[in-house]
Every structure is written in structure tokens, then in C-alpha cells.
Design a protein around this nucleic acid. Structure first.
Length: 287
DNA sequence: ACTACGTCCTGCTTGC
DNA sequence: TGCAAGCAGGACGTAG
């Protein structure tokens, strides 16, 4: 599940390998990944053919290629998306959805099994696509204002985990890093924002930034030069996780068994020993 | 403005 | 052995 660190690894890989290249061919093999592009597959392809890639940027889990005409190719990897750089003769991946030919012996490929991700052309979006104007700055953005975000968190009644996943409040955090940040801060995800102290709100946000920065540092090598066989969900950071996916294992801090509870059609992992549930409010469902 | 929930997708795993 | 349910979950639309 690509969250901010994984997307940043992809962004850096794209910058290294395809920046300054010109797109010569666009082949849309499945319409779904361009569903958000008003031009549809044909318009999408036509708008990109002949364009040179000038910049490669990211905000939260979105990334985009700034093009020489001021437009942008905006992308989101969703759950299972990958942007791969391959030699043109390489066999098609099973879930290859979009192929870009370049003016160099490389192909850019969007591969996505479940197609929650997608690409679109953003007119005039090279600096910041209008389509993601609602996405907040992420914790690794130099202009991220942690104090202001903490203030906003403390005015919201939703549980802190839900707030961490709200991309209009703070972007880039997904289910895994939300659980890790909360474990590190010793705060239960069901605690309402309004019931966090100023220090706790700042601590949770600071831990979110820290865990994602550490994951990024460990993932810096996962985007290989020519043969990018790495998928966005690679396990390079798994060893460093303290909560996510560790149901039943002893907490690394206090030894209590990590618990998994249902949360918004997914799972939350936490330590009942050092992340005490709020007294009032939703009772975590065991199992 | 905020909150909460349903939906989209496919393939692997689990259970009867 | 076969088949269906369960599970993974980010972002968005919608209703309240």
C-alpha cells in the first residue's frame, strides 16, 4: 500500500530516469485508470504525445510530471499501482494498464492490479494541479505547519486516527503509518481530536513525520535502475513496524499483545497496554 | 463545515 | 475438490 514514503521513492525514481525525456507514444490498455480524465483515453493520449517532462513533484500520495506546455500528468497509485521504468522489449506485466514510449530506450509503465489508482492530464497543472488543490501539505513538506494542523485537529470531534487519514487536514498518511504514529505517541486512535492535549496532538503529528522519514530513508534503494521489479508494497520497512500487522505479537515497549480491531472496513492495530482507549466514545470491537 | 458510511476493483486466503 | 465469503484499503460521492 503505497503511502507517502513509497510514493516519494517512486517520484525520485521518475525524476532520475525520465525527467527531460519526451513522450512519444501513449497506449491506454484499460480505460479505468484514466476515468478521472475528462478527455477519456483518446484525449489523454493526445494531450501527452510530444510533451517533454520538465519536473517531477509530489504532494501527499499524489505525484505529477510537469510538462513543457505547462500541463501536468497527475497520478495516484491507489492500493496496488506501480510506475515502472522498463526497457522497451520487456514482456508486458500482467496488469499493465498504460504504456508510455519515450525518446530514449525506456518505457514508462503504469501497472495496477486493482485499479484504485489512476492518471489524468491536468491543464496548466505543472506547478500544482487544480485537481489536488484540496489536498493538504504533507509532513515532509518544508511549508507544513505542524502547529496549525495540531490546532485544527483539536477542534475536530472525530477520532485521531480518522483525522490522520483525512488528506484535507494532513496528507500522505495511510493506514500503516497512522497506526505506527499512534503507537509511537502512545495514543489510541479512537480518542477524539478535541480530547487531545496540545502536546499530544503535536506528538502524534511529529511521530507521523518521523516514521515516514525513517521509512523513506530505508526505501531509498528500492527503485532500481533499469529493471524496476520492485512493487510499491515491498517489505523493506516491515521489520521496523511496531503495530501494523502484528496482531498477537508482544508490544516492543510493554510486552502486551498487539490487538487488531475493525476500523472503517479495514483494520487498526494498537497496543492495549500503552494506547489506552478513551473512556467514552466508540468501544473497540475485539477481534 | 464537519461527520460517517458506501462504493469501486482484483486476487489471494480462508472456511464450509 | 469446489465455490463463496472474507480481506486488503485510498479517495471520493453523498446524505445527514
Amino acid at each position: 500500500m503505497p503511502e507517502l514514503p513509497e510514493v516519494e521513492v517512486v517520484r525520485a525514481g521518475l525524476e532520475r530516469h525520465v525527467r527531460h525525456a519526451t513522450i512519444t507514444v501513449v497506449e491506454v490498455l484499460h480505460p479505468r485508470p484514466v476515468r478521472r480524465d475528462p478527455g477519456g483515453p483518446a484525449g489523454f493520449a493526445a494531450a501527452l504525445r510530444g510533451r517533454r517532462i520538465d519536473t517531477v513533484r509530489r504532494r501527499g500520495k499524489y505525484w505529477w510530471l510537469g510538462l513543457d506546455n505547462g500541463d501536468a500528468l497527475l497520478g495516484h497509485l491507489g492500493m496496488s499501482g506501480q510506475m515502472l521504468v522498463r526497457p522497451p522489449g520487456a514482456p508486458d506485466e500482467r496488469h499493465l494498464r498504460i504504456r508510455f514510449g519515450l525518446d530514449r530506450p525506456l518505457e514508462l509503465r503504469f501497472v495496477d492490479q486493482r485499479m484504485f489508482g489512476g492518471l489524468l492530464v491536468s491543464p496548466g497543472g505543472a506547478d500544482l494541479p487544480a485537481e489536488i488543490a484540496h489536498i493538504a501539505r504533507d509532513p515532509l513538506d518544508p511549508e507544513f505547519d505542524q502547529v496549525e494542523v495540531a490546532r485544527r485537529v483539536r477542534r475536530r470531534t472525530s477520532g485521531i486516527k480518522r483525522l490522520l487519514l483525512d488528506q484535507t487536514l494532513v496528507s500522505g498518511i495511510g493506514n500503516i503509518y497512522a497506526d505506527e504514529a499512534l503507537w509511537r505517541a502512545g495514543v489510541h486512535g479512537d480518542r477524539p481530536g478535541t480530547r487531545l492535549s496540545r502536546g499530544q496532538a503535536l506528538e502524534v503529528l511529529g511521530q507521523a513525520r518521523a516514521v515516514m522519514a525513517e521509512a523513506l530513508a530505508e526505501g531509498g534503494t528500492s527503485f532500481d535502475a533499469l529493471y524496476v521489479n520492485v512493487n510499491g508494497q515491498s517489505g523493506y520497512f516491515d521489520r521496523s513496524l511496531h503495530a501494523y500487522g502484528r496482531e498477537g505479537s508482544p508490544c516492543d515497549r510493554c510486552g502486551t499483545a498487539i490487538r487488531r480491531v475493525a476500523f472503517m472496513n479495514r483494520s487498526s492495530y494498537y497496543c492495549p497496554g500503552c494506547q489506552r482507549p478513551p473512556r467514552r466514545g466508540p468501544e473497540p470491537t475485539p477481534r
